[in-house]
Simulated assay, not measured.
Amino acid sequence: MKEISPGPAAFHELTGAADRLLRAIEDLGDADVRAPSRLPGWTRAHVLSHLAAQAPALERLLTWARTGVRTPQYTSRTARDADIETGARLPAADLVARVRDSAAHWQHTVETLPAPAWDAVVVPFTGEVCTPRRILVIRLRELALHLVDLDVGREVSDIPPTARDIVLADVIGYYSAADGVPPFTVRTTDGAELARFGGGGGGGPEVSGTPGDLLAWFSGRAGGDALHAPHGLPALPPWI
């Protein structure tokens, strides 16, 4: 599981990702947010509602780390989905304000988390066991990829290199541990090996591309047409 060490560099990445998102949505109107996003079945309003609710949900995990009192990210999937649906009916200005305010509150909570809490064990909604260092990656990943999902002119290739590489390493880490991944090797266009998947360590067919194109494919944001795969792209199980 990919983690980020807390400190100015990590906090800067999170602030930058939030700022990029907020700049992209600040002028959205009611008609804009009712339009479809790139996520099946979700409008832009659904994505914004999710982002607004996700920040306090992750803060609940930080509260768990700080206090030692088990504080689930969500009470249930049903409650999570209902909150998103309710929020998606709000006017655009309210949604943007919720995303902005929740991002600011999240950032303050992270930057003031006591040092011992960073080593505490928490369990996100996905069931993985981790520390708040992992929560930083989850938040960065959500901000970066959901900005693309909003379909407001931002692509995976627009994610700054440092943030992009963190998210790519995170997705690769997921598939390295996932069941049903066929053997194959991933390289960048300059030949650097990023990962080998599948049992046996034989490497299998090779897939190569730029980090941005690889992230777009691994995360399901592109079909992989920009990648070089002489033997065809392997079929991957769904990512979270």
Rank of each mutant, 00 (worst) to 15 (best):
K2N: 05
S5E: 15
A9K: 10
G16M: 01
A17E: 07
E26M: 08
D32W: 05
D32A: 14
A35L: 14
A35E: 15
R44P: 12
L48H: 03
P56D: 05
V69I: 15
R70Q: 06
T71E: 08
R80A: 04
D81C: 03
P91E: 02
A93C: 06
V96F: 05
V96D: 10
D101R: 13
A104L: 09
T112M: 02
P116V: 13
A120P: 01
V121M: 06
L136M: 12
R141M: 13
E142M: 04
E142D: 14
L145S: 00
D149W: 06
D149L: 04
L150Q: 09
V152N: 03
V156L: 09
S157P: 00
S157A: 15
T162G: 04
L168Y: 13
D170R: 09
P182M: 09
P183C: 09
F184T: 07
T188Q: 14
T188M: 08
G191V: 13
G199E: 15
G199I: 04
G199N: 07
G200V: 12
G202A: 08
G204E: 11
V207S: 03
G212P: 05
L215T: 07
G224K: 09
D225G: 05
D225C: 01
H228Y: 00
L233T: 08
P234N: 12
